[in-house]
Design a protein around this nucleic acid. Structure first.
Lengths: 339, 339
DNA sequence: CTGAAAGCGCTTACAG
DNA sequence: CTGAAAGCGCTTACAG
């Protein structure tokens, strides 16, 4: 590797000062056009690489935003990330990703790293059991935070998520309107706001339908495809098998459908299944999955925008924006629906 | 936000020099035990946050490794990332992730960012059409690179990937041994080393089986679940329909199976389907997917290890390590197999 | 329109 | 075992 090219290398080569070179490279109007072009050309020729650490040490702006979610391999988060990414890209922010896998210590280590790097902001889907104080710590140290998908009481920051109770109610209402009187709910945990809200929506839906809830209908736990698959066996073993199932997520529903089919029970024909999230795969599954659209791209886009506003100097505001979910009727409830 | 706490804040509070504080916080044996404890305690009490930009500017080591792949939502890459992540975590390297979506300019912008941040290394699954010179540029500027999943001729660095030609041959041999004489291959493109190798393996397998290749058997293109699904229609429209299909990837196979089922053709019963990669979902799909295990976690782990060795001072070596694939027989070829 | 100088917060020889 | 001083590569008032 040749001698490192820095601002002063360019300055010396051109007989100028580093101040002028610095200004020129950032398109300052203070520098004469001719000079600027000479400088830019020299920079290109010399293979100059801007040193962001040095700049950031001086300006205390790093151009880095941290994004931390449960797991990027989960399409639900993947779809949110996609819109965050395009929003941040447009604003020339680099983003650092982290999966916390609901491990609080991993999440903390990540926030710490962001602090050390002088990151400009954080978009977080908090791990199970994240105390409000963790968000406070970040904010106090100059790291503005925005919450997505899950929210935390008293965190004092803006959060964006779907209206889970309402959405799950939509799913149950749909099944009730189809004539179902025994409806199970598989997956999710009360340890997250999402899990609690969706369960509440399920219970409220049953109540609206005049259906008395039975504890064996509620199978807590599964939150991914594999555990959804595994839950099929337990479900099929039920003495009085419900005629319909609402799932915590599409991933759980998709795994469950694999499992039900394996057990000889045909989703959409022998039993009704509803998912939640409306991930891309839901539309091509066989049978196509009836589900509740959860506004992933809207969550991502609005969260990114909100963070950019914070970076621009807007104050934090404690508020949760609920994105309105929508029922997507396809064939997994045997009800015809969209092609 | 209170006044920023830095090394000198601690030094002043304790009546020591910043040099001593710096050494103590990094557990240097040069500092007396008592002093070190006093310093660490003060740091904790004052809420000191280590400024990595400043440190990195001085040491020119950043503790950052960049990882860039086609798309982290693709479980194939997701599984590789998982093992990279755990390997790097153990070595306290922060990693920055980027999806290039086979867009060369995105990949270049990312490498540029790494250079500006003074990143320590790069693990890359190169975008379509990446010239060897791009890798050279990174290396010349002190950013050691390791390639995964796809390799580039003449890049001069170490790469890790599955032996695709051999693996695809395994799939075809299996189908031939089951008695199939007409075998299609769906998905993949000749623009990547992976696509070329897998196609070569398919062709070689046919030749070994004494089967004359027919151009309509080769349906290029699909590389994700959705396009796999879409390809089912084209396949079902074939005048003389092959009795078996090898797919470019599990994702393509899984999407295809959804599509075939939608068309009333039952995978594992009416037609044999083989995937590639052995992602986790393959085992729970219905029917369980026969596929070729592609050693994702081995690729990730070895690539990370190789990079860490480079960081420790080992020279670059131009070499491609081929991980040996393995056939996983399940039920999608109607052949019984594992439970 | 351009330059000289200070400073961002660390670490690292070098003294003592 | 601890301290004084230089320097990493930028940017930003301040002069001129």
């Amino acid at each position: 590797m040749a001698q490192k090219v820095k601002l002063s290398t360019i300055a010396e080569a051109l007989g100028l000062s580093t101040a002028t070179v610095s200004l020129a490279l950032r398109d300052s109007p203070l520098v004469a056009d001719v000079t600027r072009e000479r400088i830019k050309e020299a920079a290109r020729e010399l293979g100059y690489i801007y040193n962001r650490r040095a700049a950031s040490l001086r300006t205390s702006r790093s151009g880095i935003v941290g994004v931390c979610v449960h797991d990027v391999m989960n399409p639900f988060y993947g779809e949110i990330l996609r819109s965050i990414e395009s929003e941040l890209d447009r604003n020339r922010q680099t983003f650092i990703l982290c999966n916390h896998h609901d491990d609080l210590s991993k999440q903390r280590a990540f926030v710490d790293t962001l602090l050390q790097l002088g990151a400009d902001g954080l978009i977080l889907s908090p791990a199970l059991g994240t105390p409000a104080a963790d968000i406070g710590l970040a904010e106090e140290n100059g790291l503005p935070a925005i919450l997505i998908a899950r929210t935390i009481e008293g965190a004092g920051v803006h959060g964006f998520r779907g209206d889970d109770a309402y959405g799950m109610g939509l799913a149950v209402d749909h099944l009730v309107s189809l004539g179902h009187r025994s409806i199970a709910m598989i997956g999710g945990t009360r340890a997250t706001s999402t899990g609690r809200e969706r369960e509440a929506g399920y219970l409220a839906g049953l109540a609206r339908g005049g259906i008395a809830f039975r504890t064996e209908w509620r199978m807590e736990g599964p939150r991914d495809r594999h555990s959804g698959f595994d839950s099929a066996a337990a479900f099929l073993a039920l003495a009085e098998r419900p005629t319909a199932i609402v799932c915590f997520s599409d991933l759980v529903a998709l795994g469950l459908m694999y499992g039900l089919a394996r057990g000889g029970v045909r989703p959409g024909i022998d039993i009704a299944v509803v998912g939640y999230d409306d991930i891309e795969e839901a539309g091509i599954a066989t049978p196509p999955l009836t589900t509740v659209s959860n506004g992933q791209s809207e969550v991502g886009e609005r969260a990114a925008t909100a963070l950019l506003e914070r970076l621009a100097g807007m104050p934090a505001m404690e508020h949760t924006t609920l994105i309105r979910p929508e029922l997507k009727v396809r064939q997994s409830c045997g009800s015809g629906g969209e092609e």
